[in-house]
Design a protein around this nucleic acid. Structure first.
Lengths: 282, 282
DNA sequence: CTTCCTTGTTTATGAGATAAACAAATGTAT
DNA sequence: ATACATTTGTTTATCTCATAAACAAGGAAG
């Protein structure tokens, strides 16, 4: 089960959010184990992160780790937050868009530095302080765009997941190349027997001949652009509507139009009723 | 290694693209194994797909499967294409957008029917006929939008990956709930000790209090909308430019503007030279 | 009948996580 | 200093899987 720190998440909470622990000079320590774990994962990917390798790197037995960390999944929780690191201060100028783009690019950089981050899966991961700081930052950028609260959250998750996905694709590719004589490119180039079957797919064939597969767009840049454009459209839409203020047909008070649903003519239910009665009596 | 059918992909090509095999009435057969595999994965997810369980379901030993399938990863290749199934015919009316959206929704439906599809990872998977048919369809929708060939491919992959990602998130959640007393909602609701630490994140707190996490947007609908909007912007941009035709400043012939680079003033290199000579001599 | 091929079974190996028991070292109280 | 408790690391053992290798039962061909 990739099911995260599933059982006993409270241990993860404690470990992640505890103040700095004591440091036994010579022996093992949480800190040291986490660092070793990160080193192993950086070098070999999360799939090849074994308790044995982490322990070896420190000169101890695999079982020794369990005196400090409840288990592998908890270790991964800790490694994750450690690798995310402190969110760097510099905030770019400008509106929400350059700032959101900067969030995405910072995340992208973190994934370059620690490709295995994207391999940390599961919906039951306890976030640590660094993870939360990153989340906070992204939300704060989106918070003053005029989006509704749940849209802010949805937008942040869309962008976050987009970056994750692209990163995951890359790690998976890297992992496949590591410990395989051939590069992915070579591997695909060797699939002639497969391509031989592709006559019956006219568009695939046409695009192939038009060079559509030769010089691919950078999927990260391409996708990020589309996603941000899509969000911009939504945000503009909300801006227009929430900026729009009409006069109440009954009392003349300002009426703020909401984003969805039927246009409002009255400022309140009371005015709506008054208008109704007036119509009826006339 | 999630590294796909890594070694010996040729076997996957053969098995996927072979005509229908013979059927030993009583005994095992590729077909039967693949079906059993799909059934197991449908019920328990790909992570819990073991050769043992597949064999049990057919009343044979685990090792018996190896007489028909080279190994687990090859089996997964076969299951994938089998579960994708034949791409249904009905093509919606209208322009690229409703048709592309329909592709995305069909894919989404396939993922509902077989959630584990999203768990099939790796860049070295041999696609089967059904997989290719789906890809062909999506590309054909994008092919006549005015996008350049490599953009068509990038757009298809963006949409495809988007659906995959959302589906993956859902399976992971489902897998975590299966075989865990508590639902994900309950699990998160039980994390009070964690939330207690969140005072220092003002935006998170504000959004929480504003109910931004209570009634979340449907991530699939929300994201699909943004992605399609983003693509629409790009497609419009390309349309405008490639529709735009100016007159050659030298001979008046129509000049089709290209999408990128400096605007063209002349219809040909020859006219450009003529203009240059005229300027010099005057 | 003998020999080979197909198909299924039994046995065995190796990787990994981690539980349980054991042992050494380090504290702490008297 | 002595006796007991706690911490920290090690050894052993167990369990789950994939899959290699050897074995066996039936059928087909000569």
């Amino acid at each position: 089960m990739r099911g995260a720190s599933g059982r006993d998440p409270e241990r993860s909470v404690e470990l992640l959010w505890a103040g700095a622990g004591r440091g036994n000079r010579a022996g093992l320590s949480l800190e040291r184990i986490v660092q070793a774990g990160v080193a192993v994962a950086d070098a070999e990917g999360l799939g090849d992160l074994t308790m044995q390798k982490v322990a070896d790197r420190l000169g101890f037995t695999a079982m020794s780790l369990y005196r400090h960390v409840p288990g592998r999944e908890h270790l991964i929780d800790l490694m994750y937050d450690h690798a995310i690191g402190a969110d760097p201060a510099p905030e770019p100028e400008g509106g929400w868009r350059p700032r959101l783009e900067a969030c995405a690019r910072r995340s992208w950089q973190r994934h370059q530095a620690h490709p295995w981050l994207a391999e940390v899966r599961g919906n039951r991961r306890v976030p640590g302080p660094n993870t939360m700081a990153v989340f906070e930052r992204m939300l704060s950028v989106l918070a003053d765009t005029g989006l509704r609260p749940n849209e802010v959250v949805a937008a942040a998750e869309l962008v976050g997941r987009f970056v994750d996905t692209q990163a995951l694709t890359l790690v998976e590719a890297a992992e496949e190349e590591r410990g395989s004589e051939v590069s992915n490119r070579e591997w695909w180039e060797a699939r002639d027997s497969l391509y031989a079957k592709f006559d019956r797919y006219p568009t695939v064939t046409a695009l192939w001949e038009a060079g559509g597969f030769d010089d691919p767009e950078d999927p990260f840049e391409f996708g990020l652009r589309r996603v941000l454009d899509g969000l911009e459209l939504l945000i503009r839409e909300r801006d227009e509507i929430s900026d729009e203020i009409t006069a109440c047909q009954m009392c003349g008070a300002p009426v703020r139009q909401t984003a969805a649903g039927r246009r409002r003519a009255y400022c309140s239910r009371a005015c709506q009723q008054r208008a109704y009665r007036r119509r009826r009596s006339s």
